[in-house]
Design a binder for these strands. Structure first.
Lengths: 211, 211
DNA sequence: GGAGAAATAGGGCGCCCGACCTATGGAGAG
DNA sequence: CTCTCCATAGGTCGGGCGCCCTATTTCTCC
């Protein structure tokens, strides 16, 4: 489970990409920020593994943010204008990756995984796809891999101690009956039989932010 | 929660001290060994935080064990004959503490906490009690501190995914009714209301070996 | 365009769980 | 020597949980 933090002054874009990333099994959005200052404040608290930063932000440019953070956590620059000059500036400022906003989602996900694993993507330019290739598939604990997005959401809540059907239903905006359906499905997939064991598994699988 | 490993060729002594340590809220016995060779094998696997080693062991003396382990994990020598010569030898071999077998249990516990925190007790001789003073009280998460030994045992099992009353009863050699009594007590002390939340708490409090 | 999966919602049933209550023996504190 | 706490054990009762069904809508995939 990799925690990603998204910063973009275009709120809609930040929201959209968050949704998209959250739907990927091994990625989790730790939070979003709509500006550089907010990003610096939140990035440390949220304990993100990887930052996705837009270059063009009104209060603090992506460059400045990179310098202040000093490479920890590692950051990937995502920009509308992926030209050579910005690219070299971003690298100089400490970016671990540099991607266009038109990058396909699976490739972005792969880049996140690669950077999270400690890779620096900036030395590679033309052969980027080859570098990312080993990271194209979600790497998730077997078992959790077979869970659907919704089932993972439910399981995460259980791992946080939300145990009552009624409360789970309210948190997910669905009927209690549906909660039970999802639970039954989770039990079968993980070879367990009640929510207590499910909570244990949720934590073991790293679905819960326990830091 | 500090994991302690006990090595002593006098099995009864090892067992006894294990029982005594396990009854202390913030200590947990990771395992025991009845000889130096066994100790070296098991100490690494068990991931103990602190070793308690008897000097007088038939196959490998405590001195030799200390040298082979090289100070990690930190070890406290416990001996029947706490004379100056053995003491200096033990320190030279890398012991972090040197105690007589007649040391009171609370003091031993304090020594374990101190060494676990990175302290080296060997420089201090006469003023040992003053050094240990800050470590005399169990340092445990508030909440877990109020739990009894038995309640903690039950909670630990829950955190490992043992959820059924019947199975919990078998594991603890008590009646299902008693299990329920303990559970009710745990719920009240931790301000929770079911075993799912209890399992979450057990893990959060570090009662479960999740390494 | 038909198959399959996922998310949604519901009904019924048996059993376990949690809440509340009493009770006894042993250990430690005063 | 009491008084309190802990561990043990038991009883009752209502409600929630897990298990087995069916069903519809919306996707994606070939």
């Amino acid at each position: 489970m990799i925690d990603v933090f998204v910063a973009d002054d275009h709120t809609l874009f930040a929201e959209g990409i968050s949704q998209a990333l959250a739907a990927i099994p091994d990625l989790h959005v730790a939070g979003t920020a709509s500006g550089g200052v907010e990003l610096i404040e939140l990035a440390e608290k949220s304990r993100a593994d990887v930052l996705l930063i837009d270059l063009e932000m009104p209060d603090l440019s992506g460059f400045e943010v990179l310098r202040r953070l000093g490479g920890s956590p590692p950051a990937i620059i995502v920009t509308m204008h992926a030209d050579a000059e910005r690219r070299s500036q971003a690298i100089e400022a400490g970016a671990k990756g540099f991607l266009s906003k038109s990058t396909p989602l699976p490739e972005l996900a792969a880049a996140v995984r690669a950077v999270s694993a400690g890779l620096d993507l900036t030395p590679h330019t033309t052969t980027l796809r080859d570098v990312l290739d080993p990271y194209m598939e979600p790497s998730l604990d077997p078992g959790a891999a077979s869970l659907t997005v919704r089932e993972r959401e439910l399981l995460t809540l259980l791992g946080e101690g939300v145990s009552l059907t009624e409360e789970l239903a309210e948190r997910l905006y669905i009927s209690p009956k549906t909660v039970k359906n999802h639970l039954a499905s989770i039990y079968e997939k993980l070879s367990i039989s009640d929510r207590t064991q499910a909570a244990v598994e949720a934590i073991r699988l790293g679905l819960v932010d326990n830091r």
